[in-house]
Amino acid sequence: MSYRTTTLGDGTVAFDRGTSLLVSGSSMDVQEHIYDLLSEAGEADETTILISTDRGAPEVVRSLRERDAFDAGRVGFIDCTGREGPEEVAGAPVRRLGSPGDLTGMSLEFAKLVDRFDDAGAGDRIRVGLASISTLLMYTDVRTAFRFLHVFTSRIRSGGLFGIFAMDPGMHDQQTVNTIRAVFDCEAGIADDGDVDLRGSGFVTE
């Protein structure tokens, strides 16, 4: 079973299990695309883990609800905005980190959420979102970010999950963008007019 989406261009795109996709474009556009991609998890009996560096958990819930795609039992959030708050928002588990630079904390909370879905028998069909790498890069150097993302995508591959990562190339120098880009199987470039340019491997267009 693949991870399907109709949000990237006209047709349906099916991503292989274990694939990690980079969604690149202006910050606002890529955020919206990440939520669009995550919101299709419910239709396919998948679960969702979102690591959010910019929007707090209540806002994340609102973004999913706007898409009619919020199911408290099938999502988990890692809120890295540093905001205080409860461990549940609208019934969904929220793990909180002090900063987007706490990579160990991020991986630990991710592992615990996967465990939780595992126990519920849904640990191998997870859409994993990270929004965004651009914010991460304000807290760590490129080398650390590259290595973290490389290990993270290896874990996603090994678990048969689907990784969806956001980055705004306009915020970084070209060399940084090219380095980070190399971690991913495929990339969806979102142009200012909304056109999507999907390239790389790990998917088929139907």
Partner: peptide, 11 residues
């Protein structure tokens, strides 16, 4: 790669 290994490697 299992979860524990992933966390240790990120650490």
């Amino acid at each position: 790669m299992e979860s524990g290994e992933f966390v240790a490697m990120v650490r």
